[in-house]
Computed example of a mutant assay.
Amino acid sequence: MKSWYKKHVKDLLSEEKGMTLVEILASILILSLVVTTFLSFFIQAAKTNNQTDTVNEATFIAQESIELLTYYSKTKSVEEALKMIETENAKEKSGFKVESNIFKKSDETLYTGTVNVSKEGKAYAQMETRLSFETAKEIKY
């Protein structure tokens, strides 16, 4: 009877109807590696989106400031525009520091308007335009 029992137990053990603990652990390890890889892609994409949003916002602020300088060049004198720029430079827009400036090189007929947009010391947008102050008197630098 002992040999009959051993024979049937061997037959039962030789039939694999499930998974061993080692197989389960190996499959969990492989699955966790795949999931971790995909999660790192999503995290990197989120960081890139945040950086892009910041640069876009800074660019829109710089464009708005350039348009303001253009408006000043059509309606104000250089001195008035410089005073208005000083008050605008003192303000922060959406956490960005905006620095606008108007200057003229001695050998040029047009003024140069520049805008720099930065946050925490890092520049995010820079724009430049040429301006003609028709109503303006010459300013000497």
Rank of each mutant, 00 (worst) to 15 (best):
L69I: 12
L69M: 13
L69D: 13
L69Q: 14
L69N: 08
L69G: 07
T70F: 06
T70D: 06
T70E: 12
T70A: 02
T70R: 15
T70H: 03
T70K: 14
Y72T: 01
Y72G: 03
Y72I: 03
S73P: 00
S73N: 07
K74D: 14
K74T: 13
T75Y: 15
T75D: 08
T75G: 03
K76T: 05
K76G: 01
K76L: 10
K76Y: 12
K76S: 10
S77Q: 12
S77E: 12
S77F: 02
S77C: 06
S77D: 13
V78L: 13
V78S: 00
V78E: 08
V78M: 07
V78H: 01
V78D: 02
E79P: 01
E79N: 11
E79V: 09
E80I: 08
E80F: 01
E80D: 14
A81H: 08
L82D: 10
L82T: 12
K83G: 00
K83L: 02
K83P: 00
K83Q: 11
K83N: 11
M84S: 07
I85S: 03
I85E: 14
I85Q: 08
E86H: 03
E86I: 00
E86W: 00
E86V: 03
T87D: 09
E88I: 01
E88P: 00
N89H: 03
N89M: 03
N89K: 02
N89Y: 09
A90Y: 11
A90V: 07
A90C: 04
K91G: 08
K91M: 07
K91L: 10
E92V: 15
E92K: 15
K93M: 04
S94C: 04
S94R: 12
G95N: 05
F96R: 13
F96C: 12
F96Y: 14
V98W: 06
V98T: 02
V98A: 05
V98L: 06
V98I: 07
V98F: 09
V98G: 07
E99V: 09
E99G: 05
E99A: 09
S100K: 08
S100M: 15
S100Q: 13
N101E: 10
N101T: 04
N101L: 06
I102T: 01
I102L: 08
I102E: 06
F103R: 11
F103I: 04
F103D: 11
F103V: 05
F103M: 07
K104N: 14
K104M: 12
K104Q: 15
K104D: 15
K105M: 07
K105T: 04
K105C: 00
K105E: 02
S106H: 08
S106I: 11
S106R: 12
S106M: 08
D107I: 10
D107E: 14
D107A: 11
D107R: 04
D107F: 06
E108G: 04
T109N: 15
T109H: 05
T109E: 15
T109G: 13
T109M: 08
